[in-house]
């Protein structure tokens, strides 16, 4: 099956990828391809837009219309693509830094407009590409090359941020929980509006090494054991809740979508005097 996915949705001549051994970016990228495959989307109509970062290199390997932009700006470029041609299925691939630091403003405004773009955040809690500086999702107390004494910042919850800003679909899974990840990406793509799916990920090379998180396998086990579905968290005894992070679907509603509203506006003015 996975080799079919590669034949069908990846630019084989551009592989192998640049990611480090043990990096989870490949798993999340595969989940996106799998979701597209299961939905049977027309490849010519899929456009994948990314910013800058290790994660943002993913579109280059994928056989669609792909746009690798500037750091943080993927959603702004994607907004232009989608509004210019609403028939396209527009997906944004971004990192935690790309999406929520330099691109934070574009994120909340894309969510507010409820424009039909599905954003997949590869959240490894660190700036991978530039060598391990802390990001807006680095946990308080964790180490980064620019937090050598421990991070005193508080982290963002990107999925909840998007939900609060107006996204009509917001969910989080992990690079370990791929079944849910694929399901959420599919639901995100199907949602007529702004969707954000966060994929909790690992960067063994920088985050892992700096924080002595152990091997990539150990880091994946941490994803497995530490994330609890929002639907069952309340059923857990207090002692089991401690230190756990939430995954699952945080928002799934319907609301007017931006490009559809714009097309209605064009229709409304048709025939009217200029």
């Amino acid at each position: 099956m996975s080799s079919n996915l590669i034949n069908e949705y990846f630019r084989e001549s551009k592989l192998p990828h640049i990611w480090c051994p043990g990096c989870s970016h490949g798993i999340v990228t595969r989940a996106i391809a799998k979701a597209i495959d299961e939905l049977g989307l027309d490849k010519d109509k899929v456009t994948i837009v990314s910013g800058i970062g290790c994660s943002s290199r993913a579109p280059g390997y994928m056989d669609f219309n792909t746009l690798h932009t500037t750091h943080g700006r993927a959603l702004a470029f994607a907004t232009g693509v989608k509004l210019a041609n609403p028939e396209l299925d527009v997906i944004v691939i971004t990192g935690d830094g790309d999406a929520s630091a330099i691109g934070g403003n574009h994120l909340i405004h894309a969510a507010r407009r409820n424009i039909d773009i599905t954003t997949i955040v590869f959240n490894n809690n660190i700036y991978g590409m530039t060598g391990g500086q802390y990001s807006p999702t680095t946990p308080t107390g964790a180490l980064g090359t620019t937090a050598p004494h421990g991070n005193i910042d508080k982290p963002f919850d990107i999925a909840q941020l998007a939900a609060a800003a107006g996204a009509t679909y917001a969910a989080r899974s992990t690079a370990y929980h791929t079944t849910q990840l694929i399901k959420y990406i599919k639901k995100g793509i199907q949602n007529k509006g702004f969707s954000l799916v966060e994929a909790a990920s690992i960067c063994p090379t920088y985050y892992g090494r700096k924080n002595k998180s152990g091997s990539p396998v150990k880091m994946m086990e941490h994803l497995k054991n530490n994330f609890v579905d929002v639907k069952i968290i309340d059923k857990l005894p207090e002692e089991k809740k401690a230190g756990k992070e939430l995954m699952g679907e945080f928002k799934d509603i319907t609301a007017p979508e931006y490009t559809a509203e714009y097309l209605k506006l064009i229709d409304r003015l048709k025939g009217a005097a200029k």
């Binding site: 932009t69 470029f77 907004t79 232009g80 693509v81």
Partner: peptide, 13 residues
């Protein structure tokens, strides 16, 4: 920044 980014996206589309 978003203005020019969206305009580039629009042109590509």
């Amino acid at each position: 920044i978003a203005g020019i980014a969206a305009a580039i996206g629009g042109s590509l589309a």
